[in-house]
């Protein structure tokens, strides 16, 4: 079935909100007819700019979406030992969870290292993933400064930045990962 045909078929349904015979609705409530798309009623409620700010967690590879704050590898090392080492191993060398630290050279078939330094194409992904998921027992508990610090620690441990470098929204977006160009898109433009 072609994409165009399917979209057109949905198009005839677009905006048709049906009453369902739920207990909260009268069975006698009239069903709305099919309406032109431009007049289609929506059952959603508008999101305000504040709503969007509260909901939007997306961070793009160019740094859009990164919050204010900053951190250093030293500060991050202390946090890593406290929160991450148990599963990711001493200095991120791997344990029950993934190895995070490895040589900052692109992986090869003979040395298929998929650590951050070897494999990850964008540094912004580190901040994003920590903010969403870490530490898993109390996700959401780290401050932005703490997340920047952990990001700085992992970048320094992978020898992507220096041990004294400060990571913030601007500097993180400027980090170029060694494997940035290591990917080929298959089913996407």
């Amino acid at each position: 079935m072609s994409m165009r045909n399917t979209t057109m078929r949905y198009g005839t349904l677009a905006g048709l909100a049906l009453a369902v015979f739920a207990t909260s609705l009268s069975a006698a409530e009239p069903l709305p007819g099919i309406q032109p798309r431009s007049q289609a009623p929506t059952l959603g409620t508008p999101m305000s700019a504040d709503d969007i700010t509260a909901w939007n967690l997306t961070i793009f590879p160019d740094g859009r979406g990164l919050p204010p704050g900053h951190g250093t590898p030293d500060q991050g090392g202390t946090l890593f030992a406290a929160h991450c080492e148990r599963c990711h191993g001493v200095e991120g060398r791997g344990a029950t969870a993934d190895e995070l630290v490895g040589p900052p050279t692109p992986p090869t078939d003979a040395d298929p290292n998929k650590s951050i330094g070897s494999y990850w194409p964008y540094a912004t992904t580190i901040f994003d993933f920590i903010r969403r998921n870490k530490p898993p027992e109390t996700s959401g508990s780290l401050s932005n400064d703490e997340i920047y610090s952990l990001t700085a620690y992992l970048l320094a441990a992978n020898k992507i930045i220096g041990t004294q470098d400060v990571i913030d929204a601007k500097s993180l977006a400027q980090v170029k990962m060694p494997n940035r160009d290591g990917f080929v898109r298959i089913d996407a433009p």
């Binding site: 992986p107 090869t108 990917f183 080929v184 298959i186 089913d187 996407a188």
Partner: peptide, 9 residues
Amino acid sequence: TGKARMFTF
């Protein structure tokens, strides 16, 4: 080759 397939949906 050392390259990785991405967005292999």
